[in-house]
Structures are given as C-alpha cells and as structure tokens.
C-alpha cells in the first residue's frame, strides 16, 4: 500500500497536533477541582448524643488513625462538597459558628481560612493533592475535640 503525503499535509498535521496539545492544556487548566469539607466530633464515647451524627467513613477514619489522636470515635456532624475554579474562593459553613474559606491558589494549592464566630482564627496555604487531607482541630468541652477536614476529591 502506497500513500503520498505532501509537505503541505505534513505541516497541517503538525499544526493540528500543536493545536490539540494546546487545547488539552487549556482544558486541564480550566477544569474545576472538587473538595469535600467535614466537621467531625472526636470523642471516647461510643455513641453521639445526636442521632443524626454518623461515624466517619472508613477512608477518613484510616487517615485520622495515622495521626494517633487520643480519641477512639469520630462522628461526622456536617459534610459539604464544593467545586473551586482556578483562583476562586468558596466560603463553607460548617456550623452556626464555624466556617472555612477556601481559595484556590494557581490550581494546585489551597488557602484555607478557619473562621470562628466571625473572626479569622487561622489561615494557611497548603498543597493538597487528590486524596490528601487537611485536618484542623482543637479541644472541645468534656475532653472531646472538633475537627474540620478538607479533602480534594477530584
């Protein structure tokens, strides 16, 4: 089988390949990243007094176990998924008094602000690859603790 390819056709093929790579790059850059934020109560009690609270997913539990915290049980109080475009900011209410503000930094890092009672308590910029998890926590009454987790889902 013989095929004749002129130089013009070759040039068009190369131009098409370049355009393809450029468009693919733009599509990747333009894609939104999905995150999941959770408010978790850490306790040694076997059950939560609030029946709506469920035990955290095994995946999150496994991650929390690597931190060797002193609590035996973790109950999910609130969960919220959200998408973040490049450079966008999303404020996510975790409870009446607690929220986080997440800002995308150059499509790879996130700037996370923890807001308690309307005041910014902590702010940090983290590289958060898919599957990694950022845990913000503090002590709560009766030797329990609150945790806010942020995970990149996609």
């Amino acid at each position: 089988m013989k095929l004749t390819i002129s130089r013009g056709l070759q040039a068009r093929c190369v131009a098409s390949a370049l355009a393809f790579f450029a468009l693919a790059g733009l599509a990747v850059q333009a894609a939104e990243l999905k995150y999941e934020a959770r408010l978790i109560w850490a306790t040694n009690d076997k059950k939560s007094p609030d029946s709506k609270h469920k035990e955290v997913d095994p995946e999150i539990r496994k991650k929390l176990d690597t931190l060797n915290l002193k609590w035996a049980n973790y109950f999910e109080v609130h969960r919220k998924q959200f998408s973040l475009a490049k450079g966008a900011v999303e404020k996510v209410a975790m409870s009446d008094k607690c929220s986080i503000e997440v800002r995308d930094v150059d499509g790879k890092k996130v700037e996370v602000s923890l807001i308690g009672k309307g005041e910014q308590v902590w702010k940090g910029t983290k590289l958060l690859p898919k599957g990694d998890i950022l845990v913000l926590g503090g002590n709560a009454p009766n030797s329990t603790a609150w945790l806010v987790t942020l995970k990149r889902v996609e």
């Binding site: 931190l67 923890l114 913000l136 926590g137 002590n139 609150w146």
Partner: peptide, 17 residues
Amino acid sequence: SGTTLVWLSYPAEIEFA
C-alpha cells in the same frame, strides 16, 4: 497517608467550642 493536622489551642474550650 497524606494527612496534615493543624491543632489550634484557640479557641479551645473558650469561644469556638
């Protein structure tokens, strides 16, 4: 495990919680 923990003393047992 790709887990980062940031532990805050504030507002522990004061305002936040």
